[in-house]
């Protein structure tokens, strides 16, 4: 049965090879060479592009990308966890309505949503017009880091809520009853039982928010103007404006490695938590 169905995976394997594996190798190849990409004979092995990544200007951009992604992820977690908890505890008929609130924005185009935020946050946008209508001083959050972080939180929040909600809703009610039976009040039950059991959901939520946040270039360009350059913008520029594919590839590889390291740290954290007999209080 298992073996006979194997051929069903072939179309996807072909797809994966053409659109994932080969491009990855191409990126790796460009990052390790220099010369004119339109003239294969001019290409030679070089680590020059990687050396450039470590110039202070570029390190600053990478640092800022990780910082903003971290802040957004943190906010998504702080905002998202209670929401997931509420959705998982309300009655079934309200559950689907609440979930809809989180899903409807995803149905809309990502770019459109970000444009909407532009019109809310921009100097002449909704918020400032409201403030000046009320006779209050206006804010200048856009373009700027605050606007970028707000955009990230808005766009990625559902990806934090959904995995946590899924794990929460799978927790056996009797486990919670067992905790209360053993003397834990509601707060204790949450911190000693529910929260530790949702760690896998938190990990995947963080992953699903942090990864797109750290590599985004649309949010930072639309809401950050030209002054909030992130690593995603830097890579995009290398391919579209600067036409330096070698440097763009090197940046991509570095970004990928850093994301992989972050994920490895996260999963280490998860497995530590997992086999822990150690008390958490």
């Amino acid at each position: 049965m298992k073996n006979r169905a194997k051929f069903l995976a072939y179309p996807y394997l072909v797809w994966m090879a053409i659109f994932i594996v080969i491009p990855l190798f191409l990126v790796l190849f460009y990052s390790l060479t220099k010369g004119n990409i339109h003239d294969p004979s001019s290409l030679s092995f070089s680590l020059e592009s990687y050396a450039r990544v470590f110039e202070v200007n570029y390190l600053k951009v990478i640092w800022k990308s990780f910082k903003l992604a971290f802040i957004s992820t943190l906010f998504c977690f702080v905002l998202g966890y209670p929401v997931a908890l509420i959705i998982s505890t309300v009655k079934a008929k309200y559950k689907s309505i609440l979930l809809m609130f989180f899903l409807v924005p995803i149905w809309m185009n990502f770019l459109l949503r970000t444009y909407a935020w532009m019109s809310i946050l921009s100097p002449n946008g909704f918020i400032n017009r409201l403030l000046s209508f009320l006779g209050l001083p206006t804010l200048s959050i856009m373009p700027g880091q605050t606007a970028v972080v707000l955009g990230m939180i808005y766009n990625f929040l559902p990806f934090m809520v959904l995995p946590i909600y899924t794990v929460l809703s799978k927790i056996d009610r009797s486990v919670i009853e067992a905790a209360m039976d053993l003397g834990a009040n509601k707060i204790r039950t949450f911190f000693n039982v529910i929260f530790p059991l949702t760690v896998p959901g938190i990990i995947s939520g963080i992953t699903m928010v942090f990864m797109p946040a750290v590599s985004t270039f649309v949010i930072s360009r639309l809401l950050g103007g030209n002054k909030e350059l992130l690593i995603g913008n830097l890579i995009e520029q290398q391919f579209t404006v600067q036409r330096d594919w070698h440097f763009g590839s090197a940046l991509s590889i570095i970004l990928m490695i850093m994301i992989l390291i972050s994920m490895a740290v996260m999963s280490k954290f998860e497995s530590d938590n997992d086999n822990g007999g150690a008390p958490t209080w």
Partner: peptide, 10 residues
């Protein structure tokens, strides 16, 4: 409990 309801994280 019927299905033991053990704490799988401990």
């Amino acid at each position: 409990f019927q299905r033991y309801a053990l704490f799988t994280h401990l």
